Amino acid sequence: MEKKKLVLGVIGSDCHAVGNKILDYALSEAGFDVVNIGVLSPQEDFINAAKETSADVIIVSSLYGHGELDCQGMREKCDEAGLEGILLYVGGNIVVGKQNWENVHARFTSMGFDRIYPPGTSVDTTIADLKKDLKLK
């Protein structure tokens, strides 16, 4: 498989590191070149890492429920930084409380995210979507 570069991190004031490390390991084992920017990461860190490494995808994780606030305007900032068309994935516990998933998905889609994953999504799902979206075998 052709190595594609992914920027992975936990956005905002979220310090949940274990899931981030599991994703890093699983994505690396699946053949991706993972640039892990860690936890407590602002949008700018994701964007700067993607620019510096010519990444194909930005994967945003959020577990503390404030992902919706932390992700607002990210697509526009990517475009302004010259990253038009970069794939944006987001997943985890991305909103506060029990909300209708279809509504949550629609809000993140309108924010420009290409893939939006609910809590409990298997990393295998993300890997399959990456291979499909990046046209890998």
Rank of each mutant, 00 (worst) to 15 (best):
residue 114 D to N: 15
residue 11 I to P: 04
residue 11 I to S: 00
residue 48 N to P: 00
residue 42 P to K: 01
residue 129 D to G: 05
residue 32 F to E: 13
residue 119 P to F: 03
residue 62 S to Q: 11
residue 103 N to D: 15
residue 124 D to P: 04
residue 12 G to C: 05
residue 76 E to Y: 01
residue 32 F to A: 05
residue 105 H to C: 10
residue 122 S to K: 14
residue 90 V to Q: 05
residue 79 D to R: 07
residue 59 I to S: 06
residue 107 R to I: 08
residue 43 Q to V: 01
residue 133 D to V: 09
residue 5 K to G: 03
residue 22 I to C: 00
residue 53 T to F: 02
residue 67 G to V: 08
residue 46 F to S: 04
residue 37 I to N: 05
residue 100 N to M: 08
residue 92 G to L: 05
residue 10 V to N: 11
residue 25 Y to W: 12
residue 126 T to D: 01
residue 101 W to A: 13
residue 40 L to G: 06
residue 42 P to A: 01
residue 4 K to M: 11
residue 57 V to L: 14
residue 40 L to R: 06
residue 122 S to W: 14
residue 48 N to C: 09
residue 94 I to T: 10
residue 5 K to C: 12
residue 21 K to T: 09
residue 50 A to Y: 00
residue 54 S to L: 09
residue 84 E to F: 06
residue 86 I to S: 12
residue 51 K to H: 05
residue 93 N to G: 00
residue 135 K to E: 15
residue 114 D to W: 08
residue 112 G to C: 04
residue 20 N to L: 07
residue 45 D to F: 02
residue 118 P to L: 07
residue 58 I to E: 06
residue 17 A to I: 13
residue 57 V to M: 10
residue 6 L to E: 04
residue 5 K to P: 06
residue 91 G to K: 03
residue 18 V to W: 12
residue 19 G to H: 06
residue 107 R to F: 11
residue 122 S to I: 09
residue 51 K to V: 03
residue 14 D to N: 05
residue 34 V to K: 05
residue 132 K to N: 14
residue 24 D to E: 09
residue 95 V to C: 12
residue 32 F to V: 11
residue 70 D to V: 00
residue 116 I to L: 00
residue 10 V to D: 03
residue 133 D to S: 14
residue 124 D to M: 07
residue 129 D to V: 06
residue 71 C to Y: 03
residue 45 D to Y: 02
residue 89 Y to W: 12
residue 76 E to D: 08
residue 60 V to D: 01
residue 109 T to M: 10
residue 109 T to D: 13
residue 15 C to N: 10
residue 117 Y to P: 14
residue 90 V to T: 14
residue 92 G to Q: 10
residue 17 A to S: 12
residue 86 I to R: 09
residue 28 S to F: 02
residue 21 K to E: 10
residue 119 P to R: 11
residue 42 P to C: 01
residue 26 A to M: 13
residue 10 V to E: 12
residue 137 K to M: 15
residue 98 K to H: 13
residue 128 A to G: 11
residue 91 G to I: 11
residue 64 Y to F: 10
residue 48 N to R: 12
residue 67 G to H: 08
residue 91 G to E: 10
residue 64 Y to G: 08
residue 98 K to D: 15
residue 125 T to G: 03
residue 6 L to D: 02
residue 47 I to W: 02
residue 61 S to T: 05
residue 9 G to P: 08
residue 116 I to N: 06
residue 47 I to V: 00
residue 11 I to E: 01
residue 79 D to V: 13
residue 124 D to T: 13
residue 118 P to C: 09
residue 96 V to E: 13
residue 135 K to P: 12
